[in-house]
């Protein structure tokens, strides 16, 4: 039992859970407990970034927050009917989003680079219940100059595994990636500083060594073709 209690939220009508923040959650529910232990992602310096997975500004997103978990990261979530597949069952594709999100942000925090998903594989074990509390953890398996391999696990509050994921990422420098993003020069500068600060503040004890890769031309030129492919 490791999930954070979800203050002020009712099962079945909330989107994500345990997203402590300064204001109401995306669905108008009160924020959860203090966010002292949540990691400030580099993206937070962009005042209006809308990442579906981790932005606190996207009312349609799942607003994940992360904490350090050993060498990796952890997030807790509770999905509502907006993310339903069969009645009472969370859409399985969302689990891919969550796993991709936590693994990608882990690489961001470890390398200061921008990761693009080149492949991801999910093993679904058990349906995820609407309104149920879950946690997702991720760690780097190995990192080389070409690809970084990661793994993620989604568990029920009582610890039973409901899904596992493995993925590979190719990292791109911010300068290369920013060509494909709608960022002005000031935002790129802020983000560059935030990425640098994030990597220097990440825990180092026992953390796997990840070699930040220089982006090959093919990926740099056409990142959209390799992003978030779910096998």
């Amino acid at each position: 039992m490791t999930s954070t209690p979800l203050a002020g939220q009712r099962p079945g009508d909330v989107a994500p859970g345990a997203r402590p923040g300064p204001g109401p959650t995306a669905n108008g529910h009160p924020p959860g407990p203090a966010a002292a232990d949540h990691i400030g992602l580099p993206w937070y310096v962009l005042e209006d970034y809308r990442c579906f997975g981790c932005s606190p500004h996207n009312p349609h997103g799942i607003q994940l927050r992360f904490t350090h978990h050993g060498d990796g990261l952890r997030t807790v979530f509770r999905l509502g009917r907006a993310h339903e597949s069969y009645p009472g069952v969370v859409h399985g594709g969302l689990l891919g989003v969550i796993a991709d999100e936590i693994m990608g942000n882990l690489i961001v925090l470890r390398t200061g680079q921008i990761p693009f998903t080149t492949g991801m594989r999910l093993r679904y074990v058990l349906p995820v219940t609407v309104g149920g509390g879950y946690e997702c953890t991720a760690r780097v398996r190995d990192g080389g100059a070409q690809l970084i391999h990661t793994e993620s696990e989604i568990r029920e509050e009582n610890g039973a595994v409901v899904a596992t994921a493995t993925a590979s990422y190719r990292t791109v420098s911010l300068d290369a990636a920013s060509d494909r993003m709608e960022l002005d020069a000031a935002q790129v500068d802020r983000l560059r500083r935030a990425l640098s600060a994030a990597t220097t503040t990440a825990p180092t004890t026992g953390a796997p060594t990840v070699v930040a890769a220089k982006a090959p031309a093919a990926i740099t030129d056409r990142p959209e073709e390799s992003h978030v492919r779910v096998d």
Binding site: R121, R123, Y124, V125, L126, R141, E151, E153, A160, V161, T164, T166
Partner: peptide, 18 residues
């Protein structure tokens, strides 16, 4: 069937194989 799938998931993780 769920427990069997958990077995498979654990094997995959332990052996780093799909």
């Amino acid at each position: 069937s769920v427990k069997v799938l958990r077995v498979i998931a654990r094997i995959e993780r332990a052996r780093d194989v799909e």
